[in-house]
Design a protein around this nucleic acid. Structure first.
Lengths: 190, 190
DNA sequence: TAAGTCATGTAAAAAGTTACATGATTCT
DNA sequence: AGAATCATGTAACTTTTTACATGACTTA
């Protein structure tokens, strides 16, 4: 099974949902660390159902299209729990921005600065968004809930803290890069 | 063109190389932020040649198989420089470990700790490796070289510093997670 | 003698993205 | 009147991974 399958199971382990719901949850909160389009989600849900890890019931609605609400099965929950605890190797890193930086010595300083500033501001925006979510979570959490492994909210909170760390680090590094390039008074290439 | 194409151009902009050389350079240093197998590299090189961004000459060798040495063309260098400075949106994040953490509330504390400790030690190992490379780079660099945008070594150094930040952040977060789970004296799920 | 390095590829399968396809209701 | 939301999918294409394929020389 591909990671997407476990992403979907991870959401359904918290609450039943339709494909449409899952697509939105795939943007937030799963989108902070995984991504999929609906053209991948619908077939994957069908595969999970065939494997017996989820089951759906059709919910008829007035004034809205009918929907299929999926729920995780015991087998699905067991498969998810087993996968979650299974140790893993670090997968290959992929950061297209680093690829740009690797060849940025070919660019002139103003273009390089524009690139980096634009990227830094996107990361700063994300950081602000994550911090806001964090504040909300901390406000709404029951006492100790965000410190207990068996709580799904703790799990979400943990991933959010990692996201905050990540964005902070990225922004700080961009800042360093910008300052270094601004301080560079040597000529341009060629 | 896919990012891999620019990864290859980025390497060839520094020095001509054979496909085989590029495969090794794809592990280090590009491997720190991009990844590809040889089955993707050879065809991509052919595509770059067809597009006129690289050109090869066959170098005959005694006691070793002949090799094709690729060099970047002016058109290739121009395409690379343009791409490198082009602003980009943050691409979708993908972190399978976070996906596990998201569902880790289903696991028992000992299994969860084993998972996290294993992952943390892998990141700590990488951090140590990066720090070692950093020390070597700083020792071998000419004065100011690592602070000048137009130097390819500066570009490599910048990506390395980001890698160090990243690994440090990951290790620190793992540590926090481990401590939090160890401090959790509430019961197990179910 | 077995494993590792140098050297270059192809084929098939899986995963992921983009584009196509439809239609009612609700909000601006 | 037009855009957004609810709701579910398929088709075609691109990207990436895994497996197949070969062969000489060097090091342990």
């Amino acid at each position: 099974m591909i990671p997407l399958a476990y992403a979907l199971l991870g959401l359904l382990a918290r609450a039943p949902a339709s494909g449409y719901d899952l697509i939105r949850e795939m943007e937030e909160p799963i989108g902070f660390f995984w991504h999929a389009r609906r053209s991948q989600i619908y077939p994957e849900l069908a595969r999970l159902e065939e494997a017996g890890f989820v089951a759906h019931t059709v919910v008829e609605q007035q004034e809205r299209p009918d929907k299929k609400v999926f729920a995780i099965t015991d087998a699905g929950r067991a498969a998810l729990a087993a996968w979650a605890a299974e140790p893993m190797r670090i997968p290959p890193e992929r950061d297209e921005f680093m690829l740009k930086v690797f060849s940025l010595w070919l660019a002139d300083p103003p273009s390089a600065l524009t690139l980096i500033r634009s990227y830094a501001s996107q990361h700063a925006e994300r950081l602000a968004r994550y911090e806001a979510i964090r504040a909300t979570m901390e406000r709404n959490a029951a006492a100790g809930e965000l410190r207990r492994l068996h709580s799904p909210r703790f799990a979400s909170y943990a991933t959010l803290l990692r996201g905050i760390e990540y964005e902070r680090g990225y922004v700080a590094w961009c800042q360093w890069l910008i300052e270094t390039i601004e301080a560079d008074d040597s000529g341009e290439p060629e």
